[in-house]
Amino acid sequence: MTTVLDSRLLGDVLRDILRPFDLPPVEDVATRRRLARTLLSGRDNGSFDGLALAYAVIAFCASTEDDAARVLEALRDNADALVLDGVRGGYVLLPCAQDGQLALARDLHARLGLDVWMGVVWASRRDLAAARATAEDVLRVASCRAPGVYELRNVLADFAVLRRPHVAERLVRVIEPVVAQQPLLDALRAFIAEDGNRAAAARRLDIHRSTLDHRLRLIERLTGCRPTSPRALLTLSVALTAHSAPDVPLPRTH
């Protein structure tokens, strides 16, 4: 028996363990949507036989309704996927072994090739409600960044602050003087988006490098945080999230 065959066999066994075998047919979209909502709201009392032991919970949103619709289309024939869809976003539940969630979400994202943001969390079946809340907050932070797949570890600081309103409140006070001046706000956003690369940030804004440096120094004077220090840049970036974390267009789960 070759190694290739071995690993295929292992794959088959895993799929048998994880795969739902008793779900409503894929055509019955409404029933499957109801099931997804029940699972995500934590009202699953263990009475559904056909469910997997663990899932990747993917919260997604797109910049247009068409793009969101194409996410659903990509999953239409997947009998394993449970989807709770909204207008420009939704939740996808995919049976998943631990540590497999990132690859699964990236694979889906790569097949779409659209401006779609995804927040992905792995959870056992009984923890799906908490995982949904985490995925939603990850997506809220990620939606201010480049389109792609995000896990909690990619947005840890922002996520923590969204969960701690008293901290968020103080950070908002720190960043307010910067937000009040559009050129400074633009400079900070560009500097963060370019991962602290000054030359790239100046190009993005179409300003001279010394103009950017001057604005960064002003930001330091106003906030006490020096943007060229990684720690201070993280604080500034988190403060921006606290100041204007957008709501994402996700459907209600209860």
Binding site: T134, F159, A160, V161, R163, R170, G224, T235
Partner: peptide, 15 residues
């Protein structure tokens, strides 16, 4: 203010 997000990190169990 100097340790804001660190204190938020410590206070949030999943983080």
């Amino acid at each position: 203010d100097d340790m804001l997000f660190e204190s938020a990190l410590v206070e949030t169990p999943e983080v």
